[in-house]
Structure formats: structure tokens, C-alpha cells
Design a protein around this nucleic acid. Structure first.
Length: 930
RNA sequence: GUCCCCGUAGACCAACCGGCAGAGUCGAUGGACUCAAAAUCCAUUCAGUGUGGGUUCGAAUCCCACCGGGGACACCA
């Protein structure tokens, strides 16, 4: 291409780049996108939006990787940027911040690989991300940006940890309360006499048992390959680590936990107050897994076995019991020899119950999780030799162990009711156990009946429906001391410690008792000590018998610390675990509100303004939160939990962090393999006659994530270089609805560039650079189009339908293009409406149209209702569903008149037949039935 | 296996509460400009809505079944 032949003032990538860098500098210098707070340092009563209605829109912040952004990453950011620019122009005080989630495993692993300190690589990555985002013209209030690794930020992460540590959950009010209130209640003696008799250390231990953050020795997910323990949420159903895909083993280790289970009910129930996609709500409900039912006690000769059941109404049909193989009671109930009546299939061929149990346990332990849960697998198990007594009818039922009962759920023991449970049915068939129906199944029904029906074979329950029978049975159990109503959760407490370096240190020390002591707020932040020795101790991924070792524990001079915590100067030992990656992202939405506040996490006035509830029942929270569906459980559950704790303790007025959630789609890309199956660079593939070639070699197309592995990465930098940021933004927004995933196609980007070029040309003469716009009024027909487009664009913007909004803007541009004069009446609204998507070009044109400064606070165009009324309506006239004619009438024509004209228009088709029915749909069509 | 979402021109996507299947983009074809090409501009092209039923005056839209794609859950008592 020769520059001399391109018109000198054409909107090319080079010109776009020039305009874009200029406006980005302007916005930064003038603080154009600073949002005023009601209180504190960021308050600004002179700001055009001070005191205006607020709108808090947020993206899930990125984890800055070494690879930088590809074109898929900013999709949501551009969406929220366009949306918030629009809302700002309609009068809102918009908060649209961006930060960086920079602690965590990947940064540390990258650092280990490269031998560079994670602080260095993280800072470099954050820097690069900032540059890339700035280049796209994203309108962030940069004063509110932070990384979770900033000590000023994680000081407050640690502060929240202290709040959690210094609280307990009071079930009587279903909320967290300060631990001091619990201590006071113990000291008053209202919680029994043990307190008075307890030593100081014992008292601490008692209290520690109530805290929302606590240390416990419990089975946890130990991942030798990563050298750390993991939360349940971080382990895949296959029993491997979500990150790195290493084997995970159950080990009993001493770890920090957070009592998220206390919030199970509220985490389920408050979902109803949220405007979230249903699938995400469902995933959270599934994960929490609340079930209501009863604990029922079955007695054996020596012990009592408590089971959890959701179907206490079927107790009369319980014909055997099953314990998880690991259940504590198994060894105690196993008798010396098989009792009389033991069937052969029950013994697994073993000579004694003890041998059978041992053999079964060994076999179960050797199985992988996949084998254990394999679809359609036959039930296995073995008789323990013991019998228990069904509390409702005194029947003796055999007790089995089987791996279909999980140790970690409920009590690890079940009563088996084969007639009403498919799993129990399958087991009963294998082990020849009796099946007694206790719910009337439909005629001819085979198998376990889990539906609703009338109780049968159940003595005093007979005739009751399932719900009624459940309630009656729970009452009976409680009155007879055989059980209680109970609710269980699949959700486990949150394993909160990691044996890694790159995370927030705990604000915790230990004294000689080995019990944890919270550091006072005045000692925050506990700064992560610098070290060259940051590599975690990892192990052979398959070696379960290894012990985690925290990198911080090697830093002896840091671990041993002299402090005065009220008892004079003493030596303490620091906690050497660090917090999990989720900690920093659990509350960042709050810090954006008041990022510089060093007195409080967030000033209450600022929190109430940006996130407070607006009406009764309103949970408050971020008005719009946009991000990928992959955070449906982990991040969104943890942050809801922390938010509720902060709410209970009075630090925030909203009881949910994110009122509306929107899941954006993904941009994926084609990748190509040659005949040998090797990936070839996607940008070298050329299409010919429906086939793809690199040179003369045919290659084969597939579809997947954009990434190095598939050699199909396209970066925003490439796009800015080739087309400019505005073109890139318009393309991403125009290619489809924000929530739909779609393939990237670089060659289609030119369409968006052409659109911007046409719009540019409406204002600027490509040869002279002069402004072509006149003050002559627009012709009436185009005016109608203009107002129709304004009305449509507003509607689309409000609903986040950016693709259709852009289509309307293109339509308007295409309407104006052939006109001989370019009227200001049309151009100014067009420029304003384009500005959310192509802000740099719009600013530039706005200036050329004679305006000073930025258009960021200009009023978004409003449609004139008078212009939205059509001059004439053309009614298609259908006869028996087929269009047979048309009539054109003025919009205010009465229905009867339309009907008459329509019938006249199709008189020939109707001929001498009599219409059975004539339907006039006002403004739409006329349908004649003959 | 169960549940959820989605199938519309060659590709990406529109079509509001059931009312004439097309707003926009790419591609393709033709033309203008050019010595030529690129870029740009103008014009044209193309589906009857995954399949089969049903409801309705009228179905892409609602209902049922099936096919295809994507996602979630998968012994949670």
C-alpha cells in the first residue's frame, strides 16, 4: 500500500492510533473517569455527577499471567465499559473500577520456573495488563485500582481474617457475633459450670472451638505434587487438583478452617434475592447441598448407630443398614464369628466378619475415585456380622459396610430402604435382602419408588402422604428419644490455609500453649517477608505419605518474633501458612469503594452509597457483576460468605456482594493441524474451496480455546496495530450477544473498521480534513430513522444488547451516507451514541463539531416520541394464513376501517365466499379466515 | 444416567407479548476508481428457521418426541 494514494484524512489504523493515544492521555490527565464518593478523600462536590444516582458495575478482575491478554479476555471489560459510558451519559454516577488478583499458585509456579521472585514477575505482569487495558480506552477510575498483593490492600484482607477469627456463629439468631460476647456469656455462668472450673488454657481452647476461623486436625485434601493442601472446591470429581491435575489424597492434618457451613442456610436462602443466572444459582444450591430430614438412632448390642435420612417416613421399610467402610463403629460392632443365618453372599467368602471387613476395606482403598463411582457399577459390600434394632418396630436388621455410603456425608451411616431408594434397591438385589414397600407405588411399578404416595405397611403412619408422614415420624422420634429432625449439608467448612509462599500471611502468632493468638489491628499488615527461598516443597505426586512444609517456616528470623501483646515482651511463633488465592478476591468489590482509606476497610457512607440496599428486601451489592461462569461456586460462594460475616458484624449495610450477575461468553478460535496431527500456526492457514491450506499442504480445522498450545492467539495489541482500539471494541461488541461464545475471525474485523470510516467520513472530508457538517435541518424521512434508532439504541443498551445497538448505529450511518448534505441534527446524536463503543473517535469528532473537552458527561440522545409515530402503516392481509394483499392506512385509522379496506384488498381472493373470521391485529396485520 | 442452555442464509448473528423470516457484519459475485493491484465506494446474491408431530386464523417463537452441539451434576441417604 502506498500512503500517497490513501486520502490523507481517511480514518486508518494509523490515524486511529494517533487519536486514541491522544485521548487516552487526555482522560488520564483530566481524571475524566474519576467517580466522586460521598465521603472521604475521593469526595468531590464539584463533580458533575456528585450526589447523582449511583451505578456500580464491576468485572471479575484478572489474574495477570505472563502471557498477557488475548482478544478473548477483554470481551467483558469492553462490554461493561460500553455500558457504563452509556449510563454515565444518562446521568448516573458510575463506579467502574479494575484491579488485579495477583497472589496465588500460578504466579508462584511461574516464578519457580523462571527463578525470578514472584513479586517481580507479578509487578511486571500487572504493569503489562495495565498498559494493554489502557490502550483499549477502558474508562476506569485509576485512583481505585490495586493489586491484592499490595500491603495496603492485604492489610485489610488480614483485618477481615481477624474479624472472622474474633467471631462466633450464634445459631439462636443465625448470625455472627463478636467472640467477646461469647466469653461474657461463659463468664456469667449461663453456659454451665465448666467454665469456672477450667484453666486459662482450657478456656482458650473452649473459645477457639467456637470461632468462625479455627485450627483443626481433620482429614484434608493433601496434594504432594503441589506441596499444599486444597479446599474441597479445588479438587475435581476425579480426585485431582484443579490446578496442575495432580493426585489428591485424604490426610489428617492440622489446618485453618472457616466455618462457612454455619452460613449454609443463609447462603441457600439469600440466592432468592439475587438477580443471577439460574444455572449459577443451581450450582450453588447443589454445592451447598442442603437436605432436611432426621437423625435416627439404631441400637446394636454395644453401641448406638446414628443415621441421617431424608425419608424418616420410610423407617418401617428399613431392612438393613450400611456404614461407610471407614466408619469408627465398624471395628467395635464386628463379632468373633458369623452369626446364624448369615447368607453366603454376605461374607465375601471370608471366614470371619473381621477378615471380611479387612478385605473389603483393603479392596475399597485400592480403588480410584473413578472406579468407585463408575456409572452402572454393581453395588459391593460385606456383612459386618452385627445386627441393629429398628427403633420403630424392633426388627433386627443386618449391618453392612459398603463404599456406596460416604464417610464424609451425614453421619457416614444409613438406614437402607430398598423399596424407596434406587441405590438401596440395587444393593438389596445383590445381597438378597428383603424389600418392604412403605409408600404405595402405582399399579405395575417395578423397582424403587421415590415419588409421592400414601404410606403402607407402616403401622400408625398408614394412609399419610410423604410430607405428612415425615413430619409425624420426626415428632414420634423426638418424643420417644429415638432421633431428631436434622438438616445436613454437602458443603464442608472451608480449608483456608496453604503451604505456599505467595499469599497473604496470617495475622496470627502462637505462644507456648500452641494456641493461636490474633495480632492486634495496630500490627497490620503482617508483611510477607522477602526471601529467595520461595519454592514450595513439592513431592512425588503419588506419594501420599509426605508432610507439607511451608516456605515461610524456613525463614527462622521471621518466624520467631518478640512482641508485647499485653503480657510484656515475649517470644512468639508466627503462623507460617498463607491464605488461599480466593482470600484477596473475597472482598475486593468493597475496597474499590474507598481504596485509600487507612482508617477503615470502607467508610460506611461510601459503602451505603455504592452498595447499600435501596428498598425493603433489596440485598444491596454491586449493581452488575460480569464474568465467566467458571467462578459459579468457588469465588462467588466465598465472597458471599465473607460479605455476610461483615454484614453481621455491622461493617457493611448490604447482605450480598453482587446483586446482579452476568456471565459473559467466551471468544474461542479455530486451530489447524496438518496431516501428521501437528498444530500449525492459525494465521498461516488459507481457505480455498472450503478446504484449508498452509502453502500447498492441506490442514484440518478444529475449534478451541485461544492459547499458545493451539497456536491461535490473537492479541488486542495486534488488533490495535492493524485496526485501532475503537475498531476492535466495535467488532467485539458487534459480533454477537455478550453472553454467547463465538469464534474469533480476524478477517471480519474490517467490517467494523468500514463502519467507523463511513461515520468519520460523514464529518471529515478525507481529502482536506475539513468538517463537512452543516446546520441545515435533516430531511423528515431521515429524522424518523434517527429517532427510531435513538429509541432502539437506548433500549438495547439498557439490556446489554450491544450487537443490535451497533447494528442500528450502522443503519443510521448508512441512511446518512448517501445524503448530499450532512446535518448536524443527525451527526451529533450519532457521535454521542457511538461514543460508548468507539470513545476515542467519538471524542475526536465531538471536538471537530465544535465542542470543548470530553463528551463523557454529555447527555445521551433522547428520542422525540412524535417522531416515533409512523406516517402510514402497511397492513399485510392474510387469507387462510397466506399474504394475499396489502393496505396502507394512516396510523390512527379505526379498526373497522382497516378491516373494511383489507377485505376490499383481497376481495378477488375471497370471491363469493363469506369470511368466517376477520382478525385485525392493530399495527401488525389483518388475517381473514374463509 | 439426570437436569439446564442452544440449533435461523456459506460464516457470525437479528426478528419485542405468537403477527409480512432480515437489522447489521463477513464471504461470494458484478460494477466504479486504478496502468494494475490493494484500500475504498456502489449494487447483487442466498435460508423458510435441526427433524417429526401438536395447539392456533396465524408458530423461528408455545407444547410433545427425536437428532445434533455446549454446560452442570453424577452413589450426598
Amino acid at each position: 500500500m502506498s500512503d500517497t494514494e490513501t486520502p490523507p484524512f481517511r480514518y486508518t489504523a494509523a490515524l486511529a492510533g494517533d487519536i486514541e493515544l491522544r485521548w487516552q492521555a487526555f482522560w488520564a490527565e483530566n481524571g475524566t473517569f474519576h467517580a466522586p464518593n460521598p465521603a472521604g478523600d475521593l469526595a468531590d462536590p464539584t463533580h458533575p455527577r456528585a450526589g447523582a444516582p449511583k451505578l456500580h458495575v464491576q468485572d471479575m478482575f484478572p489474574y495477570p499471567s505472563g502471557a498477557g491478554l488475548h482478544v478473548g479476555h477483554p470481551l467483558g471489560y469492553i462490554g461493561t465499559d460500553s455500558y457504563t459510558r452509556y449510563k454515565r451519559m444518562t446521568g448516573y454516577n458510575v463506579l467502574h473500577p479494575m484491579g488485579f488478583d495477583a497472589f496465588g499458585l500460578p504466579a508462584e509456579q511461574y516464578a519457580v520456573q523462571t527463578g525470578t521472585h514472584p513479586a517481580v514477575t507479578t509487578a511486571a505482569n500487572v504493569d503489562r495488563y495495565r498498559q494493554q487495558l489502557r490502550r483499549l480506552g477502558l474508562a476506569y477510575d485509576e485512583r481505585r485500582s490495586f493489586s491484592t498483593t499490595d500491603p495496603d490492600y492485604y492489610r485489610w484482607t488480614q483485618w477481615i481474617f481477624l474479624q472472622v477469627f474474633n467471631s462466633w456463629f450464634d445459631p439462636s439468631v443465625q448470625k455472627a457475633r463478636p467472640i467477646s460476647e461469647l466469653i461474657a456469656s461463659f463468664e456469667s455462668g449461663e453456659r454451665g459450670p465448666e467454665w469456672a472450673a477450667a484453666s486459662a488454657t482450657e478456656r482458650r481452647r473452649i473459645i477457639d472451638g467456637y470461632r468462625l476461623a479455627y485450627v483443626s486436625e481433620a482429614p484434608v485434601n493433601w496434594c504432594p505434587g503441589l506441596g499444599t493442601v486444597l479446599a474441597n472446591e479445588e479438587v475435581t470429581p476425579e480426585g485431582r487438583s484443579e490446578r496442575g491435575n495432580f493426585p489428591v489424597f485424604q490426610r489428617s492434618l492440622k489446618q485453618w478452617m472457616m466455618r462457612i457451613t454455619a452460613y449454609g442456610d443463609r447462603l441457600v436462602e439469600d440466592l432468592d434475592s439475587l438477580d443471577w443466572p439460574e444455572p449459577v444459582k443451581l450450582m450453588q444450591r447443589n454445592w451447598i447441598g442442603r437436605s432436611r430430614g432426621a437423625h435416627v438412632d439404631f441400637s446394636t448390642e454395644s453401641d448406638k448407630i446414628t443415621v441421617f435420612t431424608t425419608r424418616p417416613d420410610t423407617l418401617f421399610g428399613a431392612t438393613y443398614m450400611v456404614l461407610a467402610p471407614e466408619h469408627d463403629l465398624v471395628d467395635r460392632i464386628v463379632p468373633q464369628a458369623w452369626p446364624a443365618g448369615t447368607k453366603d453372599v454376605w461374607t465375601g467368602g471370608a471366614g470371619t466378619p473381621a477378615e471380611a471387613v479387612a478385605a473389603y476395606r483393603a479392596a475399597a482403598a485400592a480403588k480410584t475415585e473413578e472406579e468407585r463411582t463408575a456409572d452402572g457399577k454393581v453395588k459391593t459390600g460385606v456383612f459386618t456380622g452385627a445386627y441393629a434394632t429398628n427403633p420403630v418396630n424392633g426388627a433386627d436388621v443386618p449391618v453392612f459396610i459398603a463404599d456406596y455410603v460416604l464417610a464424609g456425608y451425614g453421619t457416614g451411616a444409613i438406614m437402607a430402604v430398598p423399596a424407596q431408594d434406587e441405590r438401596d434397591w440395587a444393593f438389596a438385589e445383590v445381597f438378597e435382602l428383603p424389600i418392604i414397600r412403605t409408600v404405595q407405588a402405582p399399579e405395575g411399578f417395578e423397582g424403587a419408588f421415590t415419588g409421592d404416595g400414601v404410606a403402607i405397611n407402616s403401622d400408625w403412619l398408614d394412609g399419610k402422604g410423604v410430607a405428612e408422614a415425615k413430619a409425624a415420624m420426626i415428632t414420634w422420634l423426638e418424643e420417644n428419644g429415638k432421633g431428631t429432625g436434622a438438616t445436613t449439608y454437602r458443603l464442608r467448612d472451608w480449608l483456608f490455609s496453604r503451604q505456599r509462599y505467595w499469599g497473604e500471611p496470617f495475622p496470627i502468632v502462637y505462644d507456648e500453649t500452641g494456641l493461636p493468638i490474633a495480632l492486634p489491628e495496630s500490627m497490620l499488615p503482617v508483611v510477607l517477608p522477602d526471601t529467595d527461598d520461595f519454592s514450595p516443597r513439592t513431592f512425588d505426586p503419588d506419594d501420599a505419605d509426605t508432610e507439607p512444609e511451608t516456605p515461610l517456616s524456613r525463614k527462622k528470623d521471621w518466624v520467631q518474633v518478640e512482641l508485647d501483646l499485653g503480657d510484656g515482651l515475649k517470644t512468639y511463633t508466627r503462623e507460617t501458612n498463607t491464605m488461599p488465592q480466593w482470600a484477596g478476591s473475597c472482598w475486593y468489590e468493597l475496597r474499590y469503594l474507598d481504596p485509600k482509606n487507612d482508617k477503615a476497610l470502607v467508610d460506611p457512607d461510601n459503602e451505603a452509597y455504592w452498595m447499600g440496599p435501596r428498598s425493603e428486601g433489596d440485598p444491596g451489592g454491586v449493581d452488575l457483576y460480569v464474568g465467566g461462569v467458571e467462578h459459579a461456586v468457588l469465588h462467588l460462594l466465598y465472597s458471599r460468605f465473607w460479605h455476610k460475616v461483615l454484614f453481621d458484624l455491622g461493617h457493611v449495610s448490604s447482605f450480598e456482594p453482587f446483586k446482579k450477575l452476568f456471565n459473559q461468553g467466551y471468544i474461542q478460535a479455530y486451530a489447524f493441524r496438518d496431516a501428521r496431527g501437528m498444530i500449525v500456526p492459525a494465521d498461516e492457514a488459507v481457505e480455498r474451496d472450503g478446504k484449508w491450506f498452509v502453502g500447498d499442504q492441506e490442514v484440518y480445522r478444529e475449534y478451541g480455546k485461544m492459547g499458545k498450545g493451539l497456536k491461535n492467539v490473537v492479541t488486542p495489541d495486534d488488533m490495535c496495530e492493524q485496526y485501532g482500539a475503537d475498531t476492535f471494541r466495535v467488532y467485539e461488541m458487534a459480533m454477537g450477544p455478550l453472553d454467547v461464545s463465538r469464534p474469533w475471525e480476524t478477517r471480519a474485523v474490517v467490517g467494523s473498521q468500514r463502519f467507523l470510516q463511513r461515520a468519520w467520513r460523514l464529518v471529515v472530508d478525507e481529502e482536506t480534513g475539513g468538517v463537512r457538517v452543516t446546520d441545515e435541518p435533516l430531511d423528515p424521512k431521515s429524522r424518523k430513522v434517527l429517532h427510531k434508532v435513538i429509541a432502539g439504541v437506548r433500549e438495547d443498551m439498557d439490556e446489554l444488547r450491544f450487537n443490535t445497538a451497533i447494528a442500528k448505529l450502522i443503519e443510521l450511518t448508512n441512511t446518512l451516507t448517501p445524503l448530499s448534505t450532512v446535518s448536524r441534527e443527525a451527526i451529533e446524536p450519532l457521535v454521542l451514541m457511538m461514543s460508548p463503543f468507539a470513545p476515542h473517535m467519538a471524542e475526536e469528532l465531538w471536538g471537530k463539531l465544535g465542542h470543548e473537552g470530553t463528551l463523557a458527561y454529555a447527555d445521551f440522545p433522547v428520542a422525540d416520541p412524535a417522531q416515533l409515530v409512523a406516517d402510514a402503516i402497511t397492513y399485510p392481509v392474510q387469507v387462510n394464513g397466506k399474504v394475499r394483499g396489502r393496505v396502507e392506512v394512516s396510523p390512527d385509522t379505526p379498526e373497522a376501517e382497516v378491516r373494511e379496506q383489507a377485505l376490499a384488498a383481497v376481495a378477488e381472493v375471497i370471491a363469493d365466499r363469506t369470511p368466517k373470521k376477520v382478525i385485525v391485529v392493530p399495527g401488525r396485520l389483518v388475517s381473514v379466515v374463509i
